[in-house]
Simulated assay, not measured.
Amino acid sequence: MTKDQSLTGLLTRRRALLAGAAAVGAAGTAGLFATVTGEKPIRPAPAAGPQTHRALKPSAYRLEPLTGYGPPRAAPRRVLVRRRPFLRVSGRGRTIVLTFDDGPDPRYTPHILDTLREYDVRAMFFVCGEMVADNKELVARMADEGHVVGNHTWSHPLLTRLSRGRIRAEMERTCDVVEETYGERPAWFRAPYGAWNRATFQLGAELGMEPLAWTIDTLDWTTPGTGTIIHRVANGAAPGVVVLSHDAGGDRSQSVRALRAYLPRLLDSGYFVTVPERKYR
């Protein structure tokens, strides 16, 4: 055998080995997909010779799309299970947080949003899912104007009287409708009536939400008068406090008028109206 013939034989054997490795790799890849999906591996077509194209069965092309019909839902953020809700917020200077519960309500929420926009401040709205379902455009406006939308359950029940499964349903259903409308899942949760228990803290954390209560209760739901609401906010104002008001659940015209009066006074007194920041662990 000549030197050239020996070299040719060596190259031929090398090509055969590479071709065999490629075939084994292709078969292994097909086997891997079959293991994950439960589908039979798709055999590759021969590399040479006349080929006939057959329509693939549905099971054969399920692996092709890598995108769904919409953006994937983000996994809930890791949140510590608290033993009590936050009552205040930390921050530098004279910060204060305004919160509004039970909405959105087309009779009152737009007026509150108008006032907040006029003074260029952000607030938090703890919404009820059943109200969101009927007033999605207001929640979309909250998002557009930079406000934070929190979870206040679907139907505003007393959670401490519900089973764990019903508590989760109230929370999760509201998370879903807020995400659908607002574009993000709520990062904050407030229990109706301020009634917290171990299950509410655990389930809220599982859904990626921190519990927030309040420092100043305006008791505006009792319709005490516009002047009384203003007085309660002015007397209770201090760095880091959280003010509770309502934009739904009854006649909230006093709440609307009170905000228009006390908000500029807070700003003139040097308060910075803000929203809390989340620190994920």
Rank of each mutant, 00 (worst) to 15 (best):
M1A: 15
K3L: 15
K3Q: 13
K3V: 15
D4Y: 06
L7Q: 12
L7G: 03
L7A: 15
R14E: 12
A26I: 15
A27R: 07
G31R: 04
L32C: 06
F33H: 08
T35C: 03
E39S: 13
P41Q: 06
P41K: 05
P41F: 10
I42K: 06
R43S: 13
A47H: 01
A47L: 15
G49E: 08
R54F: 11
R54E: 11
L56K: 06
K57L: 14
S59D: 12
A60R: 08
Y61D: 06
R62M: 10
L66E: 12
L66H: 06
T67K: 05
G68P: 06
Y69N: 11
G70L: 10
P71I: 07
P72Y: 05
A75G: 00
V79N: 01
L80F: 08
L87Q: 10
G91Y: 07
T99H: 08
D102E: 04
D102W: 03
P106S: 05
R107N: 13
Y108I: 12
R122Q: 15
V127G: 02
M131Y: 06
M131E: 14
V132A: 04
D134V: 11
D134Y: 07
K136P: 06
K136A: 13
V149L: 08
S155A: 14
G165A: 15
R166V: 14
I167G: 00
M171W: 03
R173H: 13
D176T: 13
Y182V: 08
E184C: 01
E184N: 02
A187W: 01
P192E: 07
G194M: 06
G194Y: 06
A199E: 15
Q202W: 03
M209H: 03
P211A: 14
W214V: 04
W221V: 02
P224R: 00
P224T: 02
P224V: 05
T226A: 10
G227N: 13
G227K: 10
I229A: 03
I229F: 07
H231V: 07
H231W: 12
V233P: 02
G240Q: 05
G240K: 05
V242T: 11
L244W: 01
L244V: 10
S245N: 12
D247T: 07
D247M: 02
D247N: 08
A248E: 01
G250I: 09
A258K: 04
L266E: 01
L267I: 12
S269H: 09
F272M: 07
V275M: 03
P276F: 08
R281K: 04
R281P: 14
